[in-house]
Simulated scan of single mutants.
Amino acid sequence: MQKYGSNAYNSQTIAPQPPAKAKRRLLSKLLSAGQAALPFHRTHQQIPQSILEDMTPERWREMEQEDDGDFQYNWNEQFIQIYVPQLWGRLYLFLAALAKVIVLYISIFIMIIQIAIIPATHYDILGFISSSIWYLEWIFIPSALIWAQFELSTNFRTNLWFLRPRLLFEFNRQTGMVTLYRPGRLVRFSHPFVEFDCVLTSAPTQLGFMRYGLMLVHRYQGYRRGIPAALLLSKLSEPRDEMLRLWNFIQCYMDVSQPLPDMLALEAGRLNDPTTAKVDKKTGRTPRYWRDMDKATFAQTIRQTVRTYPDPMMGETIPVVADRESC
């Protein structure tokens, strides 16, 4: 069983944090733009609905069978890691999609056009053959090779290195650290969770709807980047209440004074987390409560879980910073 590090976040024993002194910080820019800072608070077992629905018991059991029971997930009792596609990977996926369209559709259309215009060229068969060979050599064959390679790598799970997503950031419950990474898994910065301020961002879309986000900004360093925590959600746009639930979920996950959030993605690691294991032993919780659910029970349980906590920000505010106004 893992032990917690010296920087692990414990909401029951938070040392008063000094106010920030850095000028022109990302937090100041966000707040001056009308964004809202969210406080630390006594959390509860409220989880965003999109996170609960992101992984189903059926899918989890399939992955366990595929890996002979040794399935590892990037959400566990030690850390939550968020990955994003690499730039070259995005370009390759675009080229693969374009190649598929060329092979299956555009090539047939071009051949029909060429055959149709043969009478207009006075039956210039040599010209038709020459243009066809040029198209095959420079467009069709390269496109077919790109598409074939993509299909083979997908079916046999042998993706090229640049197709593998890169690690962007990590919340580590065991150490209490929040880390933002550069490409190549190089650390951009890493600080204790309690040193971050959470900002609820909002911006109107082209259709006039509000799009919300969640950004964690380090309080004491003048970083130009923050932790885009909204990427924990599977959907690009979620309502404001879901973002508030997400902030509650992050605090609950990082808080070693209480058990892990009770959800499918974290269930396998509950026995390995000291606080969670004690609570589960006391309550007699079934170890595979989520993983053995059928589809109907899973959907009903999610609905009941969401209804249990109607107020996303319920709970006593924790005064983390000694003088919040000076931040």
Rank of each mutant, 00 (worst) to 15 (best):
P39E: 01
V187K: 11
W290V: 02
Y289S: 11
I133A: 08
I51D: 00
L26D: 02
L244E: 10
A99G: 08
E137K: 02
K3L: 06
L93R: 15
Y223E: 09
W88I: 14
I47Y: 02
R225A: 13
R324P: 13
I129P: 05
L168N: 08
L244V: 13
P192W: 07
S132N: 13
D241Q: 07
Q114M: 14
E316Q: 12
N159R: 07
F140D: 03
L266K: 11
P310S: 00
G5T: 03
L266I: 08
F71W: 13
I113N: 04
D54R: 14
A203N: 02
R90H: 15
E151T: 10
L98K: 02
T13P: 00
A37Q: 11
E66M: 15
K29Y: 11
L31K: 08
A96R: 15
E195C: 04
Q206S: 12
E64C: 14
S107G: 01
W138H: 12
S32G: 06
T121F: 04
I227S: 01
K295T: 15
H41M: 05
L232G: 06
P259N: 10
W88P: 05
G34N: 09
G284D: 07
M293T: 05
F79A: 13
E77Y: 08
A230N: 15
Y223H: 12
K278H: 04
F189N: 03
G315M: 01
R25K: 07
C252E: 06
A230Y: 15
E242F: 00
Q251F: 02
H122P: 05
L214W: 04
G213I: 04
K282Y: 09
R211S: 15
S6H: 12
C198H: 01
F140C: 02
Y220Q: 12
P192C: 09
S28F: 09
W134L: 14
R164G: 03
A20R: 04
G127P: 12
L126Q: 07
L244M: 14
F109D: 09
T308A: 15
L87C: 05
S143R: 03
L95I: 11
L214P: 00
F209Y: 14
V306H: 08
I112P: 12
F162V: 05
F169H: 06
S202V: 08
I47S: 01
C252Q: 11
D262V: 03
D54N: 15
G176R: 07
A322M: 11
R173T: 11
L246Q: 10
N272Y: 14
L168A: 09
Q251G: 01
D68M: 06
T179Y: 08
R240G: 04
W290L: 06
D124N: 15
Y220I: 05
L98V: 01
K278N: 07
E267L: 05
Q78A: 10
L26T: 09
M293F: 00
G284M: 05
G127I: 01
P228Q: 08
A230P: 06
N74T: 04
A230L: 09
H191K: 06
M215Q: 06
A268H: 13
Q304A: 15
L152K: 11
L31A: 03
A229M: 11
D197F: 04
H41D: 02
F249L: 13
R303M: 10
R166H: 07
Q300T: 13
R157W: 01
D54F: 12
P204F: 10
V217Y: 09
I227H: 04
V178Y: 04
R219W: 03
Q35W: 06
